[in-house]
């Protein structure tokens, strides 16, 4: 087995430099690569283009990178939870491209499947369609959307092995597997790293061929964005 293990987040991101295009897994704050984000904040790389469904909150996730003005452009579907983001957007410091969530996911999928583009009806007849090729199949219009081209994909998994195989947990799976397939270089941080052979091949979500670097992360905060509960005993 090819060993993909690196020592930690610092080593995993060491060749990410100014101007890089990054994919970052997660939905809201669920399943985000906390360790790599913190390492990118410490490294202070700048002018990044970040492809991520959301942009974190002010003091967590991608919000930490925004606070240090490390992000030049965000490509996301929903970004409403971040005051600093709003300030930078309105002042023109930050460029934002909003795209439909399914389009975002499927453009990742296309990159991982070696397909240059996809056709989707999402956004037909709206401002999302501006400048895009429209094709009609069976009487319905579809937009042509290109596969993403990202220098690095950074994902978070629950378990991984030294060969780079990944297993995700619950809805923290979200964008992680499709982004893992889509990066020219894919970095995976996992809660638990085991020897190759310890994970059942039938239960692997992302095969190690897509993963270039893997490490066991530490001190996961796993912050909850909307804590909703029901009273017990009702």
């Amino acid at each position: 087995m090819i060993n993909k293990v690196v020592s930690g987040a610092e080593e995993a991101i060491k060749d990410i430099s100014d101007g890089a295009t990054l994919m970052l897994g997660g939905f809201g704050l669920c399943g985000i690569p906390e360790n790599c984000i913190n390492a990118l904040v410490s490294k202070q790389v700048k002018n990044l283009t970040c492809i991520s469904n959301n942009a974190g909150v002010d003091d967590f996730g991608i919000g930490l990178m925004l606070k240090q003005r490390q992000v030049k452009k965000m490509i996301s579907s929903y970004v409403g939870e971040n005051a600093e983001f709003e300030r930078q957007l309105l002042s023109g410091e930050l460029e934002v491209e909003l795209i439909p969530q399914g389009t975002l996911a499927t453009r990742c999928l296309a990159a991982g499947y070696g397909m240059p583009a996809i056709f989707t009806p999402a956004g037909v007849g709206t401002e999302v369609a501006e400048g895009k090729e429209v094709r009609n199949f069976d009487g319905k219009d579809y937009l042509m959307e290109y596969a993403f081209d990202a220098d690095f994909a950074i994902v978070k998994a629950w378990k991984g092995d030294t060969a780079g195989n990944l297993i995700f947990r619950s809805t923290s799976r979200n964008f992680n597997p499709v982004m893992a397939m889509a990066g020219k270089v894919t970095i995976a941080e996992v809660e638990e790293l085991v020897e190759a052979g310890k994970l059942d091949p039938d239960y692997i979500h992302t095969p190690g061929i897509y993963v270039h670097r893997i490490f066991q992360g530490k001190d996961y905060e796993k912050r909850i964005e909307q804590r909703t509960v029901r009273k017990s005993g009702v």
Binding site: S76, S77, Y78, V79, G80, L98, P100, Q101, G102, T103, T120, P121, A122, G123, V124, T126, V128
Partner: peptide
């Protein structure tokens, strides 16, 4: 804030 999944949902 963004369209999230709304455009995908209404289109399909």
């Amino acid at each position: 804030k963004g369209m999230g999944g709304a455009m995908d949902l209404v289109a399909s």
